[in-house]
Simulated scan of single mutants.
Amino acid sequence: MNLFDVVLPHPHLQALYPEGINGDILIGRVEFSSGGHIFLTLHTKERPSKEIAKWGLYGRDFNTVSITLSVCNAESVYISGWYMAGFVPIDIEQQKDICVIRQCNGGCKIEIKAEFLVFQSCSVYLS
């Protein structure tokens, strides 16, 4: 299952990655806020399908896209070995009305159970 299977459709995100993101992803930020709000910032080095003029050229002006998502109706979040997080594949599983997002990178383990995800924003940087 692809990450975008559990993200509510958004035209900008679909234009950037019409086939979803197939490469490795870094879960670079997990932000907890009042009212049970959780935000994820995912980083991918996968080249977008569409050029965005204000971003410049992929490979010259940027090589990483940062995507912020809102986690809706989170059931649970588990994180261990956070300092070892890196670019690795992400596993998505649908369990009844809950999606499970998992990532394991040696000693880093992340698991988020939520109803769905909503696209918030995109930015880019050169690493």
Rank of each mutant, 00 (worst) to 15 (best):
T64V: 09
I67D: 00
A74S: 06
V118M: 11
S33D: 14
Q103R: 08
I52R: 01
K54D: 09
S76R: 04
I110V: 08
N73Y: 05
T68D: 04
P18I: 05
L69W: 02
V88R: 12
K45N: 15
A114N: 01
S123I: 07
S121I: 02
Y83A: 14
K109N: 07
Y125H: 11
P48A: 07
F39I: 15
E111A: 08
G20P: 11
K109F: 12
T44F: 05
F119W: 03
I98W: 00
Y83R: 14
C99V: 14
G86D: 15
V100T: 07
E93I: 04
D61I: 10
L40I: 12
E31K: 12
P9T: 10
G106H: 12
D5M: 05
I38Y: 04
W55N: 01
I25Q: 06
F116Q: 03
D24P: 14
R29V: 15
I67C: 01
R47T: 11
E93W: 01
K113E: 14
D24K: 10
P11G: 03
H43V: 06
K45C: 14
A114M: 00
D24N: 14
N63P: 09
K96Y: 04
P48Y: 08
N73R: 05
K96P: 08
F32W: 11
I112S: 03
S66V: 07
L16D: 04
S76H: 05
D24E: 10
L126S: 12
E111L: 06
A15T: 00
V124N: 09
W55F: 01
M84N: 13
Q120K: 11
P9Q: 13
P89M: 08
H12W: 15
C108V: 09
Q103V: 06
I112Y: 02
T68L: 01
R29F: 12
R60Q: 05
E115K: 02
M1N: 10
I112G: 02
L26Q: 10
L13N: 02
I92A: 00
S49W: 10
A114F: 00
S33V: 14
F4V: 11
L26S: 05
L126W: 07
T64R: 06
I110C: 06
V7Y: 00
G59D: 00
S80T: 14
F87W: 12
P48F: 04
G56Y: 01
Y58G: 02
V7R: 02
K109V: 09
G35H: 01
T41F: 07
V6G: 03
S34D: 15
S127M: 13
C108A: 12
